[in-house]
Amino acid sequence: MSTEIIDPKVATRRLFVRSGLVAVYFLLLVVTFLLGKGYTLLIDNKDAADGSVVAIDGVLVSVDGAEALELYSGDRDATQLKGQRHRVIVELISDGKKIEKSIHLPLDTDMLLLSVPKLVAGIEPFVEVFVLRDQPRPAGEEVGNTNAFTSPDSEALETVEPPVP
């Protein structure tokens, strides 16, 4: 608007600061994306379909130092993870042997399956993308856009019909 006369030195500094900020902005977007990326990791202790490995009877599996899950043969459990890199510790209940592995999860999926027998046997890859055949859908809500009652948890007030013309 006004014809500010800006010292060229200040102007270049500003250019740097501003472009730096733009970079920081995108960096932050990426960082939040990477750090916040959530996964469901299924931890599976079953025989492989091709018979390559056999389930182990009794393991304790702990991801990122969280409380260990106890899995016996044929068990499957799930854990929620955030971020791509994780440390998995598997402890065999039988002999107390500990195996520590670091895993790196791909960005393009939300659900993966970690096969404990494969991990213990050292077969790569022991983490695979898990595809649900039939996604279960919460029933009872279909076609959108009605002004009807909405979130069950919200303050009741929000549920009275708004005056949308």
């Binding site: 009275v160 019909e161 708004p162 005056p163 949308v164 013309p165």
Partner: peptide, 13 residues
């Protein structure tokens, strides 16, 4: 009840 809330808007439009 709340039925009259939105009616003026339609008439205005």
């Amino acid at each position: 009840y709340t039925a009259p809330l939105a009616m003026p808007f339609a008439a205005v439009a």
